[in-house]
C-alpha cells in the first residue's frame, strides 16, 4: 500500500474510535427524542459526570494498591454507569416530569438549567481545571511499511470498538426483542395508547433516560481513558457533537444515531488530517447543514407520516 493510503487508513481508525463514542452518547439524545419528542440538553453533562466518576474510581482503586487493571476498569464501569444512570433518572424527574403536558419550550429551558447546574456543581466539587489520569492501557498493534508510514491501532482503540459494539448489540436486542423494549417503541409511537393498555408510561420514559445515561457513562469512561484528561466543560462540546450525530443519522432512530456518530467521527478525523485541524468543526457542522437542507429527517430518520 502507498503512503497516502496507509495515512488514510490511520485517520479512518482514529475517526471510527471517536465516532463510536459519539454514537454511544447520541443514543441518549435519540431515544429520549423518540419517546417524548424533546431534546435532553443535560445529556452532555451526564457524559462528563460519567467520565469524572470513572477517573475517581480508577484513581481511588489504584491508590488503594489494586493492580489487576481489568478488575479496576470493570468496577469503574459499573460504578460510573450506576451513578450516571441515577443522574439521568433525576434529570427526568426534576426537569421533565413535573412539566409534562406544558408547552414544549418549557422543559427545554429547564433542561438547559439542569445542564448549567450540573456543570457548575462539578466545578465546585472538583475544580475547573483539567484532571489527568496516567494512561492505563498502553501498547498498540502496528502494521504497514516502516519505511513509508506505520499504521497503529492501539489496544485502547480496540477496546473502544469492542465495548461500543457490545453496547450497541445489547441495546438493539433489548429494544427489538424484550418486553420493555417493545413498550419503549410503542410508547414512542403513541404514549396515550400505551397508557390505555395499563402500562405506566412514566416508567418507560424514565427508563429511556436511564439507558441513555448509562451509555453516556460508558462513553465517559472510554473517552476519559483515551484522552487521559477530563474537565467540567467536556460535556458541552461532546454533547453538541453527539447531538449533531443524532440529527445527522435521523433523530429518533437508534441505528441512525450509530451511523451518524461514525460518520461524524470519520469526517472530523479526515478533515483534521488533510486540512488545518481548526476546520474540523466547520466541516462537521457544515455536513449537518447540508443533511438538514436535503434530507431534513436525517439519513435513517422516518419522514413525518401523516396519520390517516
Amino acid at each position: 500500500m502507498s503512503e497516502a493510503s496507509l495515512y488514510f487508513l490511520q485517520q479512518l481508525i482514529n475517526g471510527l474510535t471517536i465516532g463510536s463514542t459519539y454514537a454511544l452518547i447520541a443514543i441518549g439524545y435519540t431515544m429520549v427524542y423518540g419517546i417524548i419528542g424533546m431534546i435532553n440538553f443535560a445529556h452532555g453533562e451526564i457524559y462528563m459526570i460519567g467520565s469524572y466518576i470513572s477517573f475517581i474510581v480508577i484513581a481511588g482503586l489504584l491508590g488503594m494498591g489494586m493492580v489487576a487493571l481489568p478488575v479496576i476498569l470493570i468496577i469503574a464501569l459499573v460504578i460510573a454507569v450506576f451513578i450516571a444512570s441515577t443522574y439521568g433518572w433525576a434529570v427526568e424527574r426534576v426537569a421533565y416530569r413535573p412539566l409534562r403536558g406544558s408547552n414544549r419550550l418549557i422543559p427545554l429551558i429547564s433542561a438547559i438549567g439542569m445542564s448549567i447546574f450540573l456543570q457548575n456543581y462539578v466545578v465546585l466539587a472538583q475544580g475547573s481545571r483539567d484532571v489527568a489520569l496516567a494512561p492505563q492501557i498502553s501498547g498498540s498493534w502496528t502494521f504497514g511499511d516502516p519505511q513509508l508510514f506505520e499504521v497503529s491501532l492501539s489496544y485502547m482503540q480496540l477496546i473502544i470498538w469492542a465495548v461500543t459494539l457490545v453496547c450497541m448489540t445489547a441495546l438493539t436486542l433489548f429494544i427489538s426483542r424484550s418486553r420493555m423494549g417493545r413498550a419503549c417503541r410503542a410508547c414512542s409511537e403513541d404514549q396515550g395508547m400505551t397508557n390505555l393498555l395499563g402500562i405506566d408510561t412514566n416508567r418507560t420514559i424514565a427508563m429511556t433516560f436511564i439507558i441513555g445515561a448509562a451509555l453516556a457513562a460508558v462513553a465517559g469512561l472510554l473517552l476519559g481513558l483515551y484522552y487521559g484528561v477530563v474537565n467540567p466543560f467536556v460535556g458541552f462540546i461532546a454533547g453538541l457533537k453527539a447531538f449533531t450525530a443524532a440529527v445527522l443519522g435521523g433523530i429518533g432512530s437508534i441505528p441512525g444515531a450509530m451511523l451518524g456518530g461514525l460518520i461524524l467521527g470519520v469526517t472530523e478525523a479526515l478533515t483534521s488530517a488533510y486540512f488545518p485541524s481548526e476546520y474540523k468543526d466547520v466541516v462537521s457542522f457544515g455536513l449537518l447543514i447540508l443533511i438538514l437542507l436535503f434530507r431534513p429527517s436525517g439519513l435513517l430518520g422516518k419522514p413525518e407520516v401523516e396519520k390517516v
Binding site: R179, R185, A186, E189, M193, L197, G198
Partner: peptide, 15 residues
C-alpha cells in the same frame, strides 16, 4: 402501533 408488527401489537395488549 403502526411500526410494530401484528404480533408485537397483540403482545402489548398482554403486557
Amino acid at each position: 402501533f403502526a411500526r410494530l408488527t401484528v404480533q408485537e401489537n397483540l403482545h402489548m395488549g398482554a403486557y
